[in-house]
Design a protein around this nucleic acid. Structure first.
Lengths: 208, 208, 208, 208
DNA sequence: AATGAATGAGCCTTCATTCAT
DNA sequence: GATGAATGAAGGCTCATTCAT
């Protein structure tokens, strides 16, 4: 599954063709040049359209960035929820979170890269409220799963606010390194190692 | 130890007073407004100096960002190496890495926050070569420690490129969350939990 | 024929009205204040437009200077080729070159003055290659005429690279003096004297 | 005779060493980079001195340009007057003017090149009155020679304001072409051809 | 005489956005 | 819906010049 599929999934139909084209090209430019360094004119040139058309579809530059960002977040959550649905035990659930994270980044490296850089801009921009709103809805499934009875018994005691970092921190760290080219090995190739390490670090250890 | 101390350490002497003042104020503005959104004029006004003086000392905006960034990296490495020097066992070494990371972020939250955002800019800007160069020298101590005989025997087998993410990923993730205000608990308060989790995830487990 | 005509000839049509206006006003300012001393803001104020419009049409200041310069060169060549077309003998050809040079400078003193000062800037700027290119095409007619059979027999032997200076040097020198106000007499009033002097200096003299 | 000699001649003595060094290096920079594009800082770096020292010796940038310009003009006039002193006939005088012009440009190409570009700046700057003043004194010898009885009888009738261009126009034109690299042949190699052409163009022709 | 940090007016240029066609 | 010329606020940066040391 590649970028085109992701877009077709998010914005289906023939009418939205130009919109999807702008999305695709803007995503590439934002990653290659940086969000601030990418001008509307560059996007216009790449898409062979007019600045007016871009403003017609996305309102303004921040609107385009936010739209891309939300698309990325929601696609990532979609995969996570799909993996989580198949997990029965707590260990399988943790594995699902690590696998889905790693797999999504490797399948959608452009969207992943963009998401890392765009979060800062969107968090401060006029769409920050919409972001908070969407975060809530999007993470409902995850919170439900975490809250299921019996979880606490299988995990080492630890503050709730620490848990997300313990679960996804190592995978996240490696994915960032891979996206920035500091390491070569594909995240997917290490997903078992990452999931096992994570599980060892948070499971409740048997009493001696 | 606060920001002023860090600066006095990096740029000692009376002559460098203005330079240190620009540093301090620019750091704050970059964090508050964002690097791109902070203008030279804002810094000038804050320091009650002239644009010429800023350019005289740092060449240009990118030079100022790079100087701040290198200062942060080197101060962070200084603490890491100090902690590492006291570690004897491998477990203590891993603990030193986690503790120094967490402690530095909490002691220098402004520098830490800046460093996260500035890396992207410096990596792409005209100081990228200097960054690579400095990275090499700065991390010599760490690489030496990691290469010491006996390490492999105490750690679970894993690719070398994966190890840094396993060691520092969880702490890094939590520090980012704390700096951005998504969590409240101080990183230092969790440093034992983080170090233990890390160690459990990478130590070589006894054969059953 | 004045500056307005020259421009209407070079950039015809109603759409180009603003472009022509910028041209006209910029030419005057460049001559009055000097090219370097003329700021985009001065041109903007004079044309009652926006800086953006100037950049939209000419790219940047160097682009505007180059556009003016090429317009001058091409208009001058147009007149030269027209005069040359009517010449049959070699003497008439030389006369055509001197007359057209002198007449053009007097008819278009602003363009002539500008051309003298802009050559230096364009030769060193980013349009230098375009200049070389255009020089070739523009001087095709002249080179053809000079190469016609029989020329050598009517002229004193002299190196080819010296000939242009012999033909146009005196007229050029006087035109510069006139444009800078060092002399009063109109170049056109002296065009016969200049052409005769030139012809005497290069014609093949009868054997004694 | 080269640039160093010219300077030793104009500013003799040991104390003036730094002054001469600034002169030499500034001349080169002005020619290589252009007068406006050369900054005081560039000159300072080249001379390994301080900006203060430059201002101490020349007042300001315009003062430095003017000092260089006057040095060039006066050296050129010195050679011209020396050549003229040896001429007895009118033809020899014209020859002396052409030869001295050509020889000086070839002996002092840097000063010649500079003089062409600096005239414009000095003519408009605060030293313009000094220029007019100096022109008068400097050209006394030339005007005396031109006014000597009998000249008119040997020259074709022509307006006085036209004569300088007739005499020096061709040589000047070729020298400019040579300095700008448009032609290769050394001016000196063509000095006889140039002087002869000039003489044929202005001498009084025998009645038929 | 020499130094060089400091000044600050002013320059060129960019670019998100608008709006008449 | 589409176009792209026009807008103009604002930014980074330069550089001649000054002056305290």
């Amino acid at each position: 599954m590649d970028t085109a599929d992701l877009l077709e999934r998010s914005y289906p139909g023939r009418r939205a063709e130009l919109k999807r084209d702008i999305f695709r090209k803007a995503l590439r430019l934002f990653n290659e040049q940086g969000i601030e360094a990418t001008t509307i004119e560059m996007i216009r040139a790449e898409c062979d359209t007019s600045v007016g058309a871009i403003y017609h579809h996305f309102g303004n530059k921040e609107g385009l960035v936010a739209a891309l960002f939300f698309t990325a977040l929601e696609d990532q959550a979609r995969l996570r929820d799909a993996y989580l649905a198949d997990a029965t035990t707590t260990e399988e659930g943790v594995q699902a979170l690590v696998y889905s994270y790693v797999d999504w980044v490797e399948n959608q490296p452009e969207w992943a890269r963009f998401q890392y850089h765009a979060r800062y801009a969107v968090t401060r921009g006029p769409h920050k409220d919409e972001l908070v709103e969407r975060n809530k809805t999007r993470n409902l499934g995850l919170r439900t799963w975490l809250a299921e009875s019996g979880r606490a018994a299988e995990l080492n005691e630890c503050p709730a606010e620490l848990l997300p970092s313990l679960i996804v921190g190592q995978a996240d760290s490696y994915c960032r390194a891979w996206l920035s080219g500091r390491v070569q090995g594909s995240p997917k190739a290490y997903r078992e190692l990452l999931a096992q390490a994570t599980w060892r670090s948070i499971r409740r250890e048997p009493e001696r």
